Each structure stands twice: as C-alpha cells, then as structure tokens.
Computed example of a mutant assay.
Amino acid sequence: MAERYSSFTPGGTTWLLQRITAAFLVVVLAFHFFLLHFVNHAADVTFASTQARMENVGYFLTMVLFLVAGTFHGVNGVYNALVNQGLKGTQKKVVLAVLTIASVALIAQGTYVALVMAGWT
C-alpha cells in the first residue's frame, strides 16, 4: 500500500487553522447564499443594498473575516499542495513569499473595498 504523505503536521498550527477556516467558511458561505439568493434574490441585489448591508457592523466584520479566512484557507491549501508535490529549497521559499505578498495585497484591497462600501473612508 502506498505511504500517505502530507506537509501538514497533524495537530500543528496550520493544520488546525486549515480545519477552523474550513468550518467557518462552510457556515458563512451558507449564510451568504441564504441572504443573497433566498432572502434577497440575485436580480434584486444593487450597489445601494450592498452599501446598506456593509454599514451593519456585524455584517461588515463577518464579510472581512470571510475574506481573511477564505484567503488563508485557499493560499495555505495551494502552498501545502505544492509542498506535497515536492517543492523544496529556494523555490519553496520564493513560492511562500509570493503567496504571502499576494495574500496581504488581496486582504488589504478587499478590506479597503469593504470600508468604502460601508462608507467608513
């Protein structure tokens, strides 16, 4: 039987955060779909209604956490998949640096857009 290999250390911090963000994303994604596809139908969602939702502090924080959790979960998953495929040495460090910079940029831009939508800038 083939040996199982994973770059995640069971019980390690990234292993735990990957599972926590997965659970959080499932719950918030369900909330997102319920709110924007059943309560407010997609055709009824407007820029003004998005601004109104973002003005609610709870909704704003949920969406920013959704952004952070989704970014971490996706980037961490991609990075570990590449490590599992044999990424090592300098290439591993470069990929980690590029993914980290891209993640910070995505979170900064997404947070800025959320702040603008909430009217807080």
Rank of each mutant, 00 (worst) to 15 (best):
T21M: 04
T13Q: 07
G86M: 12
L17F: 13
A52R: 13
K88T: 10
L96S: 08
V83N: 04
F60L: 08
T46L: 14
F24E: 00
F8M: 05
L87N: 08
A30Q: 02
M54R: 08
G89P: 03
T50K: 09
A23C: 10
A102C: 08
N84P: 08
L87A: 07
A108Q: 07
Y59F: 15
G12L: 07
A102R: 02
F31P: 02
V113N: 12
Y5M: 03
L96M: 10
L96W: 14
F47I: 08
K92I: 00
A108D: 04
M1V: 12
Y59P: 01
W120E: 05
F47T: 07
L65P: 01
P10S: 11
V116R: 13
V27G: 06
T13A: 13
A2M: 11
G70N: 09
I101W: 07
T46D: 10
A114C: 09
G74H: 00
A48T: 14
V26T: 07
F8H: 12
F31H: 05
N40T: 14
G86F: 15
A2K: 13
K88V: 13
Y112Q: 10
M117G: 07
A81R: 13
S7H: 11
T71S: 10
N76V: 11
A48F: 09
V116C: 06
F66T: 03
N76H: 12
A43P: 00
G12N: 06
L25M: 15
T121Q: 01
G11Q: 09
N56F: 03
G77K: 15
A2F: 14
Q91W: 06
A48R: 15
I107K: 09
H32S: 11
A52Q: 10
Y112H: 13
F24G: 03
F33K: 01
R4M: 10
V113P: 05
T21I: 03
V26P: 01
Q109I: 12
T50Y: 02
A2V: 11
P10Y: 13
V83D: 05
K92Q: 12
T71I: 10
M1F: 11
T111H: 01
V95Q: 07
V64W: 01
W15L: 04
F8E: 11
Q109K: 11
H73A: 04
A52N: 09
Y79V: 09
V28T: 14
